[in-house]
Design a protein around this nucleic acid. Structure first.
Lengths: 236, 236
DNA sequence: CGCAAACTTGATGTTGCTCAAGCTAGGTGG
DNA sequence: CCACCTAGCTTGAGCAACATCAAGTTTGCG
C-alpha cells in the first residue's frame, strides 16, 4: 500500500519553520518554507521502496517513519526511525537506496526533487546546512555500526531505550515506544523473541518498568547507561 | 604512536587534483588544491583518536587508512577502510567521533580546519560537492549496517571480497588485501578465527584462491555475488 | 464479547565465539 | 646467507549467545 498523491492537504502554512533550516538566515528560510506541501500518511503505509526513482524529499512534521533495506530472502535491517524535523528521501543518484514506511500516522512536508535541487543551488547556506544534517546522520549510522557489530543483546536494548529517552526528553523518564517488537528487532539485529526476553530481563532487574504496551519508564538510567556500553555487566 | 607534524613534505604540487573536487569547475578547483599540505604517515600509526579536537581534514593520496570506534572494554568496530581520494576527519562538531590509523604507509593531503571551513563558505559548489561525498559515505554505512545486522559470516566475507575487487578493478580479479585478519574481523563484526575459517571454506569450494598472504584471486565472481546476498547458500 | 495480531515464555538447535595448539612467513642477527 | 624468532595466521574442540520452533497470553479493535 503506497501513499497516494491525493493525501496532500495544503501548502505548508507560513508559521512552521522547516527544521532542516535550523541556523539559517531568516530571509533565506522563507525561500524554503514556501516550497513544501503538507501530506498525511496513515500508519503502515509505504512511502517509497528501495530502487524507486527519488522524485521527492520529505521532512517529517509529526509521527514516526522507519527506513530499511531487505535481502532477497526477506531478512530486513531497519536503518533508523525518523520523527519531527528529520529528513528522508534525499538521494544524489536519483534512486532511493532504502525503503521507507510510516510507523504511526504521519504528517510530512514534501518537496519535489527539482525544487529541492533548486533550493540547494540558489539558497545561500542551504547546501552547507544539509551537509551538517547529513554529517549527523552519518555519525548516527556509525554509532549503529558499533552496536550491530560489537554489542550484546542487553547492550543493544539499553542503547535503544536511551536513544528513545534522549529524543523525547521526558522529565519522568517515561518513554513512548511506538514501534513493534519486530521493528525493534530488525533495527538492533536481533529477533522479536530476543527483544522480548531482554526487555523482560531489564524489568526483572528493576531497571525499567512497563507502564503500558507502548510506554516504558526508566527506573535506573545510570545503570542503563553502563549497560549500553558494556560496563559492569558481567553478572547478566 | 601519533603522526608528527614534522612529517609534512611539501605543499601539494600543482598537478594532482583533489578527488573531493570531482565535478567542480576548473578555476574553483585551483582554489582548493593550493591549500593542502602533503604528509607521510608510516603503517600502524594513529592519525587521531575519538574525542580529539578535529583540527585537520585529510585526503588520502596513497596507501590505506582504517577508522574505528571502541567500547570501554576494548571491543572494536572498524567503520571503514579508506584509499586514494577518500576524505577523513571532517567533523562539524569540532570533535572526532572515531579514531583513524594507517594500515599501510600512507601519503595524505592535510587541510587545517580553519582553511577548510573557509573553502566551504567561499568556493562555489564546494559545500554541494561535500554533500554528495558525505551522502555516498552514508550510503556505504547503511550497506554495512545491513551486513552487520543481518548477514551470516559467509555472506559477510563474500561482500567484503567483492568490495575490495570493485575498488581495485583488476581485470584478472586478483585483489590485494593489505589489512590483517583481525582488522577484517573488526570490520565485519566477526573474530579472526571465523574470518580464517570462512576464507578457508571459500578456498575449498574453489570460489577463491590464495596467491600469496595478501593476494587473493576470485575464481568465481558470480557465485561470490550470490553468496554476498544470501542466494543459493543453503548447502554451506 | 470474540477474534486476530502481537507479545511473551519455554525447549531445543545452530552459528560463531573462546580457548588452545600448531603453522607460516617475514624480519633480524649471527 | 641462513637459522631463528615472533607475530600473525590457521585449525580444532567445546561452549555460549542468540535463533528457531512451538505454545500460551495479552491487547486492541470490530
Amino acid at each position: 500500500m503506497y501513499a497516494q498523491a491525493a493525501t496532500v492537504i495544503a501548502h505548508r502554512p507560513a508559521a512552521p519553520i522547516p527544521a532542516m533550516c535550523k541556523g539559517m538566515a531568516r530571509d533565506t528560510v522563507s525561500r524554503v518554507s514556501g516550497v513544501g506541501l503538507l501530506q498525511n500518511v496513515p500508519a503502515d503505509t509505504a512511502l517509497f521502496a528501495e530502487g524507486d526513482d527519488a522524485d521527492n524529499v520529505y521532512e517529517v512534521v509529526r509521527g514516526m517513519l522507519k527506513f530499511y533495506k531487505l535481502l532477497p530472502d526477506g531478512r530486513r535491517q531497519i536503518m533508523g526511525f525518523l520523527s519531527a524535523g528529520d529528513l528522508v528521501g534525499l538521494s544524489f543518484t536519483g534512486i532511493h537506496t532504502y525503503s521507507a514506511e510510516a510507523v504511526t500516522d504521519v504528517t510530512l512536508c514534501r518537496y519535489s526533487r527539482a525544487s529541492f535541487d533548486r533550493l540547494v543551488d540558489e539558497v545561500p547556506g542551504f547546501a552547507r546546512r544539509l551537509l551538517a544534517v547529513r554529517s549527523d546522520e552519518l555519525r548516527a549510522a556509525q554509532d549503529q555500526m558499533l552496536l550491530l557489530g560489537r554489542k550484546m543483546s542487553v547492550e543493544k536494548i539499553a542503547t535503544f531505550l536511551l536513544m528513545l529517552a534522549d529524543r523525547q526528553n521526558d522529565a519522568q523518564d517515561v518513554i513512548d515506544v511506538p514501534m513493534g517488537r519486530n521493528d525493534i528487532a530488525d533495527y538492533l539485529g536481533l529477533t522479536t523473541e530476543t527483544v522480548c526476553r531482554t526487555v523482560s530481563k531489564l524489568k526483572s532487574l528493576g531497571i525499567i518498568r512497563a507502564i503500558s504496551a507502548t510506554k516504558i519508564k526508566l527506573l535506573n538510567r545510570d545503570r542503563l547507561e553502563e549497560l549500553a556500553v558494556g560496563e559492569n555487566n558481567n553478572d547478566l
